[in-house]
Each structure stands twice: as structure tokens, then as C-alpha cells.
Write a protein that binds this DNA or RNA. Structure first.
Length: 428
RNA sequence: GGAGAGAUGGCCGAGUGGACUAAGGCGCUCGACUCGAAAUCGAGUAGGCGGGCAAAACCCGCCUCGUGGGUUCGAAUCCCACUCUCUCCGCCA
């Protein structure tokens, strides 16, 4: 959420941001029109209330003195009903204002390149060389089938399309990756591990920006105020909702494993095969809370922490910065890390690292004191995948495959796999 | 799920319809005293919103005693619903 006062003062700047994102810019004028009406009525309402308070005190005074107050009470009856009516109007305007405010996206950071869609994202750097295969490499779903470590058919039977069973060494590989990533980030990168709830309430979803605008993207428990988290970003960022953090302890750095649940509405037909787009997947997520002046640097460090995972696993990747048109609703700046997938013959997103500025902090009311006596100010929040586990499995199966269908386990993972060095062609 | 108790400022805690403009204490900040500290004494200690005003300081006003409604001229206080916490019972990994 943007600062309403900022929108009032700099409407042109906000419109420009909307233009660059490809949003309709009249959102701003519409919001400001509601704001003007709200303030006008609110001022009047407050005047009436002030009058009401004065008369009320006068009545009390007279009653104490044993005097008559009947005519004042009669006048108050009228005043009270006018206040009640006006308060309803003000309340309605306030709700409308709030709704509109929640639907305005964040302002892109000045360093974000202009562009209309993903085509215009800008590559920043590459790491590693894609392997040259002496045989035609198989896509990971075929490898999963040959080795028996992925069971898509039974995932569909038991749950539905876009669900999968990991089996045997596949399940072990998934678990090994989670532990490997958590250990790396806690022991070497200084993050505190948290294990969050996988269901959260509506307020948390609003806090990080999934609601109210993107309700169709997620699963909700019927009849309850529970939403399945699309990412651990939601519970972990909301960990400090409605709190004032100790400025001396910033930045706070958390790493969380969670399952993630996405409805994938609008993705029908896309990437229906394999692990790339599932309704449920595992992810290790990095979340930071920091001072505003730290957030640009913290984003760079966060990306580096996520890249480290791929480097240790020996998986080639590149880093791109998202252009204004591809930037997520709440983000001010986002780097995607894309891993090389031989079956795609292309780099595919495996991590998305964003700086949200104070956008989420304002929604979720997460603040800190710059100085012990200073007024509380909004923190900046950041998060990024470190990494998406299912896509990492896909990348390992494809990049480490052998001609016979077997898969070599990256050396860094072997301690987490009980020393297993290879998934044999027929693992089951 | 059932029964009971409770929710008041950073914390504890008083408050059964009009002086609550929320007592008192603790903590914290500043000052006095002291060589310094402790003790003591004094003062100050919530947030949000609107306006003055373009902004800071400041001033005025409004709102907030778990949340939302209701009664009343007037609600921390009375009524209803909900949320959460605690105790006991039931169920459960």
C-alpha cells in the first residue's frame, strides 16, 4: 500500500508508475476524488461530534448541580441522529478509499528497467556452462518415470492434475534439498530458521499483498477464515505484523521451509507436464526486515545467498532483473534467478527475490524506531526463494542425467542422502 | 465440542452510567540532590486520523479501554454477537 499522503502530494509520480507498469492511471484520480469527499464529510462529522461533547459535558454539569437539562437533552437527541447518519456516510467512503488504496501497486524502484512483459527483462549475469550432452537429454518427467522417483499418474488419481508423488530416492532427494538449503542459510548466511503455519487468516494475506486483488490465485478453506499459503513469505512477513521492531536488531533475517499452494488459475494448459507448475510444491524462503536505507544492499545480498545454493549444486543459472511490466504487484524491484533446464533449452525461474520497500510494511503495520526516542517508521521488507525445491529436483534430474536414465547426485547433497551417489535407472 | 473465568496504556492493576480529561504502582526518559551511584524528590512518558498548512515544529479537533453492533442526551462501566487467553471436561497426532 502506498502512503495516501504521498498520493495526494505527488499524484503525477504515482500515475507515471502506473503507466510504466501497464496499469490504468485513472486509478489515481478516482481515488483522490473519493479522498476529497471523505475528508470533507469527516471534517463536518468531527465538528458535530465536538459540539456533541460540549453539550454532553454541560448536561453533566447541570445534573450535578441539580438543575434542569430537558431542553438540552432534546437537542442532543437530534444531534445524535445527525451524527449517526453522517458517520455511516463517512464509514462507507472510508471503506471505499481503503479498497482503492489496496489495489494500487507499488512504485517501481528507479533502477528497474522499463518494459511491457517478460520479454523485456534484462539479464544481469550468468554462472556456469550448460552441459553438452553426448546423447539427447530427456525431460525430467521422463527421467522420473524411468527411475521411478516421480509418480505423476498416482498424483492425479489421488488428488488431481498438478499433483505428484515423490517416491523412494525422489522423496529422499526432495527432503535432502530442503535440509541442505536450510543448513546453508542458517549456518553460513546467518538466517534464523522458522517453521510457519501453512494456513493463515485473511489479514495476513492482505498484509503481504495477495489479497484483496489476487483471491483467485489461492486456495481457501471452505467456511473458515483460513487460506493455504502460496509461499512462506506470507506467514513469515506477517510474523511481525502490528509490531514495532528494535532498530538496533535490524536487519532481521529468517529462513523458512514450507509447502506452497497455488490455484494456478489462468495457467490452464501451460507447463502441464512435470514438476514445474504444481498446485503444491516445497520451497525454502528467505525473508528480511530492514531499515529503509539498507534495503537495496540487502536485496543484493539476498540474491547472492540464493545463488549460492545453485553454485554448490553445480547448476548453471542466470540472473535477470524484472522490467516494470513484469514486476509483481507489491514489489519495488525483483531479480529472478533462472536455472538451466536442458528439456526447455532455456533458463527457467527457480527463485524470485524482491524488495518491497515499505509497501508490505504499511499494509501489515510493521515498524521500527530509527532512534530510541524517535517516532516509529515503517521497515522495508524483502524476500526470495532460496530455492523452489521441486524445480531444483527437475534441474538436478535433467542436468545430472546419464544416457541410461540414471542420475548423479551432486556431491554437496550426498551427505544429506546417506552417501548415495546416484539414482539408478531403475531405482524402484 | 461443552462449562466456567477473563481481556483496561510498555508492564501490573483500580475502575457498576456524567469530574474517566483512565487512579495507583512498576518500568523508561529528563532534572534536582551526590565526588559518583543507590535511595529520595520533581517533571515527562500510547497510537491513529482530520484541520490550521506545501512541509517541520507547534496548535486545535476527532477516534481508540479485545472486535463489531445495540440501549442512552451521555458507556471502560449496561445488553447482544464474535475473537482471543486461561482453567476443567470430552476428543485427538
Amino acid at each position: 500500500m502506498l502512503d495516501l499522503k504521498f498520493i495526494r502530494r505527488q499524484p503525477e509520480e504515482v500515475k507515471e508508475a502506473l503507466r510504466r507498469r501497464g496499469y490504468p492511471e485513472n486509478l489515481v484520480d478516482e481515488l483522490l476524488a473519493v479522498d476529497a469527499r471523505w475528508r470533507e464529510k469527516l471534517t463536518y462529522l468531527q465538528e458535530l461530534r465536538s459540539e456533541h461533547n460540549r453539550v454532553s459535558e454541560e448536561i453533566a454539569r447541570r445534573k450535578q448541580a441539580g438543575d434542569e437539562a430537558a431542553e438540552l437533552i432534546a437537542a442532543m437527541r437530534d444531534l445524535s441522529s445527525r451524527i449517526e447518519e453522517l458517520a455511516k456516510e463517512v464509514g462507507a467512503l472510508e471503506r471505499e478509499l481503503q479498497e482503492r488504496l489496496l489495489e494500487i501497486p507499488n512504485i517501481p524502484h528507479p533502477s528497474v528497467p522499463y518494459g511491457e512483459d517478460a520479454e523485456d527483462n534484462v539479464e544481469i549475469r550468468r554462472w556456469g556452462e550448460p552441459r553438452r550432452f553426448s546423447f539427447p537429454p530427456r525431460p525430467h518427467w521422463e527421467i522420473g518415470e524411468i527411475t521411478g522417483v516421480l509418480d505423476f499418474a498416482r498424483g492425479v488419481k489421488v488428488a488431481g492434475t498438478r499433483f505428484v508423488f515423490y517416491r523412494g530416492l525422489g522423496a529422499a532427494l526432495e527432503r535432502a534439498l530442503i535440509n541442505f538449503m536450510l543448513d546453508l542459510h542458517t549456518r553460513e548466511h546467518g538466517y534464523e530458521e522458522v517453521f510457519p503455519p501453512f494456513l493463515v487468516n485473511r489479514e495476513s494475506m492482505v498484509g503481504t499483498g495477495q489479497l484483496p486483488k489476487f483471491a483467485e490465485d489461492m486456495f481457501k478453506v471452505e467456511g473458515e477464515d483460513y487460506y493455504l499459503i502460496p509461499t512462506a513469505e506470507v506467514p513469515v512477513t506477517n510474523l511481525h505484523r502490528e509490531e514495532i521492531l528494535d532498530g538496533d536488531r535490524l536487519p532481521l533475517k529468517y529462513v523458512a521451509y514450507s509447502a506452497c499452494f497455488r490455484a494456478e488459475a489462468g495457467a490452464a494448459g501451460r507447463e502441464t507436464r512435470g514438476l514445474i507448475r504444481q498446485h503444491q510444491f516445497n520451497k525454502v524462503e528467505l525473508v528480511k526486515f530492514c531499515r529503509p536505507e539498507q534495503s537495496e544492499e540487502e536485496l543484493e545480498k539476498l540474491v547472492a545467498d540464493a545463488e549460492e545454493v545453485l553454485q554448490r549444486l553445480g547448476l548453471p543459472y542466470r540472473v535477470v532483473v524484472l522490467c516494470t511490466g513484469d514486476l509483481g504487484f507489491a514489489a519495488a524491484k525483483t531479480y529472478d534467478i533462472e536455472v538451466w533446464l536442458p528439456s526447455y533449452g532455456a533458463y527457467k525461474e527457480i527463485s524470485s527475490c524482491s524488495n518491497f520497500g515499505d509497501f508490505q510494511a504499511r499494509r501489515a503495520n510493521i515498524r521500527y524506531r530509527p532512534h530510541p526516542k524517535a517516532k516509529a517508521a515503517f521497515v522495508h521488507t524483502l524476500n526470495g526463494s532460496g530455492l523452489a525445491v521441486g524445480r531444483t529436483v527437475a534441474a538436478i534430474l535433467e542436468n545430472y542425467q546419464e544416457e541410461d536414465g540414471s542420475v548423479v547426485i551432486p556431491p554437496a547433497l550426498r551427505p544429506y542422502m546417506g552417501g548415495v551417489e546416484r539414482i539408478p535407472a531403475q531405482a524402484r
